[in-house]
Simulated assay, not measured.
Amino acid sequence: MGYILTEEGFQDALKELRKEYRIFAPVRKKGAGRFTDIDAVIYDEVEEGSPIELEEKSDYSAKEVLTPLSETLFFFTEEQCKEADIDTRPVLLFLRSCDLQAMKRLDDMYLHNGREQDWFYQRRREKLHYVLIGCGHSYENCFCVDMGANITKDGYAFSVDKIDENYRINVLEEAVRSAFAASSERQEEVVPRHVTENEVHVTVPETIPIEIVKHPLWDEYNTRCIGCGRCNYACPTCSCYTMQDVYYTDNGKVGERRRVGSSCMVDGYTNVAGGGQYRKTQGERMRFKTLHKIRDFRKRFGYDMCVGCGRCDDICGEYISFSNIINKVAAAVEEMEKEGSKNA
C-alpha cells in the first residue's frame, strides 16, 4: 500500500524517521561545481527533507556513504590493534535505481568474491536501508535501460516520487510504515516511476573474445585520456583503493591504517616492487576498465558491472564517452566474428 503526502507531511515523516535513522541523500551545494557559479549535487547527511534533491541526477554516486573516500580501518600500537569505531545507527540512503543496482554490484565484490567477506564493508552495509528515488525521465548520457538497471522492484525500504507538489510513497519495509501512515493525506496504490527509454543506446556483446585486448580501438585513448581518474570517482561501481599507513611516531610503531579511494586510470596505480608497471599507457588502462565493466565481472557474477548511469560521460574533462566505447567494442567484436567466419 502506498501513501500520498503533502510537503508538510513528508517533512513530518522524515522528522519521525530521524529519531531512529541517519538520513543521507543527494543535496545541491551552491558553487561546489567546477566553477564558483556552478552548483554540484552530492551526497550528504540531512536533518530534514527540504535539502534533498529529487529532480536532478547527482554528480557523484551514493557509494561514498558505504565506501568513504578515506576510511580509517584500525589503529595500532606496539602491543595492540583496535578497529576504528563507526556510528552504529541505521541509515536511510536516498538513491535512484541505477545506484541501487550499483550497490548490488558492490555487495558482490566485497561480500561474495571469495571465501572471506570484507568485514569493514559488511559492518557498514548491515546498517544500510535504501530509499528509491523514482525517475520520471531519462537524464543526459544515461543508458540504464540497455544495461538493465532502470527498474528496481524490491530491496528498498520505501520509494519516493514528487509529482505536482505531492510525495508518492511506496513502503516495502514495515519498520518505516508508521511514519508515513501518520502523516499521509490518503492511501492508494503507488508504483515508483522508472525510465523506459534513453536517448543514448549501447549494445553489449554476449561474448567478447580475449583477442579484443589487441584490437587497435584502444590506441586513441593513449592521447585522448589524461589519466585524471574522475570517471572512476564518479562511477557507482568502481571500487579501486589503496592502503595507507599513517604513523604517529618516528619509529613507525604507532599509527593508523586507512583505505583510500583510488583509480585504475591514474599513473602509478599498477606499480609493483622492483619498478614494474602492469598498464603503462592510458589505452591499456581504458581497455582494463572497459572490459572489467562488460566482460570480466559478467564472467564471475553473471551480469554486467556497468549500470549505465552516464556519470563518467558527464564528468570527463576530455569528453570521452564510455557508451561510445562500449559500442566500439561491439563493432569490433562483430568485425572479428565476420573475419573468423571468412577464414573458417
Rank of each mutant, 00 (worst) to 15 (best):
Arg168Ala: 01
Met336Tyr: 02
Val195Asp: 08
Gly114Tyr: 08
Val202Met: 03
Asp44Asn: 06
Lys82Leu: 12
Asn343His: 07
Cys142Glu: 09
Arg298Asp: 06
Thr270Ile: 05
Cys98Ser: 13
Phe120Pro: 07
Asp313Asn: 10
Glu189Trp: 00
Glu189Asn: 03
Ser61Leu: 04
Leu106Gly: 04
Asp107Ile: 00
Lys63Arg: 13
Gln117Pro: 13
Met109Thr: 14
Cys240Tyr: 04
Phe94Asp: 12
Cys81Arg: 15
Gly308Arg: 14
Asp107Ser: 02
Cys225Ala: 13
Asp250Lys: 11
Ile208Cys: 12
Asp85Gly: 00
Val260Tyr: 03
Ser184Thr: 08
Gly283His: 01
Ser183Cys: 14
Ser263Ile: 13
Tyr110Asp: 11
Leu217Asp: 00
Gln244Glu: 14
Val329Asn: 00
Gly33Glu: 05
Met1Thr: 06
Cys228Phe: 02
Val200Trp: 08
Ser183Asp: 02
Glu189Asp: 09
Arg177Ala: 08
Cys231Pro: 04
Ala40Glu: 11
Val41Gly: 06
Gly134Tyr: 12
Val266Leu: 01
Arg89Phe: 04
Gly340Trp: 10
Phe322Leu: 11
Glu284Asn: 00
Val307Tyr: 12
His292Ala: 13
Glu53Tyr: 08
Ser341Ala: 12
Arg177Gln: 10
Ile294Phe: 06
Lys127Ser: 10
Phe35Cys: 00
Ala182Cys: 09
Tyr43Trp: 13
Thr196Val: 11
Glu284Thr: 00
Asn166Trp: 10
Phe35Tyr: 01
Phe297Gln: 12
Asp59Gln: 04
Asp146Ala: 11
Asp107Arg: 01
Cys235Pro: 05
Thr281Pro: 02
Pro68Asn: 04
Asp304Tyr: 11
Thr152Arg: 12
Thr249Asn: 13
Val191Met: 08
Glu79Thr: 15
Tyr269Met: 02
Asp314Glu: 14
Cys309Leu: 10
Val190Glu: 12
Val204Asp: 02
Glu48Val: 02
Asp164Trp: 01
Val176Ile: 01
Glu335Asp: 03
Thr223Val: 15
Glu116Phe: 14
Thr223Ala: 15
Tyr319Lys: 15
Thr223Leu: 14
Gly227Cys: 15
Glu83Ile: 01
Val145Lys: 07
Trp218Cys: 00
Glu173Thr: 00
Leu100Gln: 09
Tyr319Asn: 15
Pro192Asn: 03
Ala157Pro: 06
Glu116Trp: 11
Asp304Trp: 05
Tyr156Gln: 04
Gln11Met: 10
Arg18Glu: 10
Glu83Trp: 04
Phe143Arg: 09
Phe24Glu: 03
Cys235His: 06
Ser184Tyr: 02
Met305Asp: 07
Trp218Asn: 00
Lys127Asn: 05
Tyr167Asn: 09
Asn327Leu: 11
Ala332Phe: 00
